[in-house]
Simulated assay, not measured.
Amino acid sequence: MASQTAAPPMSRRRFTIRVPATSANIGPGFDVMGVSLTLYLTLSVSLPTAPPPRIFTTPDPQPKITHTGEGEDEVPLNAYKNLTTRVALYVLRCHGIPSFPSGIELHCHNQIPFGRGLGSSGAAVIAGVLLGNALGELGLPKDRMLDFALMVERHPDNVTAALMGGFVGSYLRELDAVATSAASVPLAEVLPEYPADAGEEWGVDPPNPPLGIGHYVRFGWAKEIRAVAIVPAFEVSTAKARSVLPTEYSRKDVVFNLQRLAVLTTALSRSPPDPELIYEAMKDRVHQPYRKELIPGLPQVLSSVTPSTHPGLLGICLSGAGPTILALAVDNFDAIAQAAADVFAKFGIQVSHFVLDVDTRGSWVEEGV
């Protein structure tokens, strides 16, 4: 009997995407400021080396997805319901690639707690943009990738910090009528679910983002400053946290925040940091006072954990929509976290904490690993 020669193993391309956690607002900078932190969403990707398809085919078979770490029991493993892969497919479809390449295997390992104010959804969106760019070999610059992210996540603070790294301020540009219409497309049209919501529209190209939706600037950050993320054991959805905010503010409260925002962006860059200056500059009257009903113990933590009671502390605030508390400090990190934990314990709430640095690199893709 003639011997049979086994087929050679299929060559595969491998790459890794890494996206940092973020904390937004940083006191008075509501919907303006964000900082990237050293917790990560890591996406390991493997696919055959054949080029991606350029003509429409049925989206099945799906990419194979596995997930470990935070959210492993919550994240959809269906590529047409998973946020990261839906964003990736949106980027591909905007460039004439209507389906995933066949044979993709994706493994996500996530360190970022879900629904806690550390940018978990923003990280998933940025991972999706980078995945689409890498799968399609599109070569998009980061500024253009930000446009795609802002078509999905309409608040720029988290996604800008996650993509660019460091301590950033950002805003959405005022657009002309045509661009405004393009940027206001409902999310269901940007990210249709397959097959339930796609229907006959599946083969239609989705709306491309206008150029330059978001603009940003990177601020300085003193090398001594570390971030203590104090994470209560419950979730607060961003939508719910926004629902409690007023639609109008007094001039006094707006001026209060503007004054502190102007000081804080410089104060955090100065070495050595000034605790008295930073602590006062991290106070807020736009969102924190209205979210106290969603986060039992919040006012007590913000008022009782101070530089005078806890040396080494610089300032303390709600991280994003919460419930995580962000403390900036130069020393005694664990003691500061324990003080906040003791306050939360009086309300029957357990917490964990991370001592983190600022990630200055932002998101990246590395081939071959």
Results as ranks from 00 to 15, higher is better:
residue 8 P to N: 10
residue 8 P to I: 12
residue 13 R to P: 05
residue 15 F to W: 11
residue 18 R to L: 00
residue 22 T to L: 01
residue 23 S to F: 06
residue 27 G to T: 01
residue 27 G to D: 01
residue 29 G to H: 05
residue 30 F to D: 00
residue 30 F to K: 13
residue 37 L to D: 01
residue 39 L to A: 02
residue 42 T to G: 04
residue 43 L to V: 00
residue 47 L to N: 01
residue 48 P to C: 01
residue 54 R to A: 11
residue 56 F to I: 09
residue 62 Q to N: 14
residue 67 H to T: 01
residue 70 E to G: 04
residue 84 T to I: 09
residue 86 R to I: 03
residue 89 L to V: 03
residue 90 Y to S: 11
residue 92 L to Q: 02
residue 95 H to P: 01
residue 95 H to M: 13
residue 97 I to G: 02
residue 98 P to V: 08
residue 100 F to G: 03
residue 101 P to S: 08
residue 104 I to M: 06
residue 107 H to M: 10
residue 109 H to D: 06
residue 110 N to S: 00
residue 113 P to L: 12
residue 113 P to G: 14
residue 116 R to K: 15
residue 117 G to E: 00
residue 117 G to V: 15
residue 124 A to K: 02
residue 132 G to M: 07
residue 138 L to R: 01
residue 139 G to D: 10
residue 143 D to A: 14
residue 146 L to A: 14
residue 148 F to M: 08
residue 153 E to R: 10
residue 154 R to A: 13
residue 158 N to H: 02
residue 160 T to H: 10
residue 161 A to H: 02
residue 165 G to I: 01
residue 167 F to D: 09
residue 170 S to Y: 02
residue 173 R to Q: 14
residue 175 L to F: 09
residue 176 D to Q: 11
residue 178 V to Y: 14
residue 181 S to G: 06
residue 182 A to R: 05
residue 182 A to F: 05
residue 183 A to K: 09
residue 183 A to D: 08
residue 184 S to Y: 11
residue 191 L to N: 08
residue 192 P to Q: 09
residue 194 Y to C: 13
residue 194 Y to T: 00
residue 201 E to Y: 14
residue 209 P to G: 15
residue 211 L to E: 15
residue 212 G to C: 00
residue 214 G to A: 15
residue 214 G to F: 07
residue 214 G to L: 07
residue 216 Y to Q: 07
residue 219 F to S: 11
residue 226 R to N: 13
residue 231 V to Q: 00
residue 236 V to R: 09
residue 237 S to G: 12
residue 242 R to H: 05
residue 243 S to A: 12
residue 243 S to K: 10
residue 246 P to F: 04
residue 247 T to K: 15
residue 248 E to W: 04
residue 253 D to T: 03
residue 256 F to V: 04
residue 269 S to L: 11
residue 271 S to T: 10
residue 278 I to T: 01
residue 279 Y to S: 12
residue 286 V to A: 12
residue 289 P to I: 03
residue 294 L to S: 03
residue 295 I to C: 02
residue 296 P to I: 01
residue 296 P to E: 05
residue 299 P to M: 07
residue 303 S to F: 07
residue 305 V to Y: 04
residue 307 P to H: 10
residue 308 S to P: 15
residue 311 P to T: 07
residue 314 L to R: 06
residue 318 L to M: 01
residue 325 I to H: 01
residue 327 A to E: 03
residue 335 A to N: 09
residue 337 A to G: 03
residue 338 Q to K: 10
residue 347 F to S: 11
residue 347 F to A: 03
residue 352 S to F: 08
residue 354 F to M: 07
residue 355 V to T: 10
residue 356 L to I: 10
residue 363 S to Q: 08
residue 365 V to R: 08
residue 366 E to R: 04
residue 367 E to T: 05
residue 368 G to A: 04
residue 369 V to M: 13
residue 369 V to N: 14
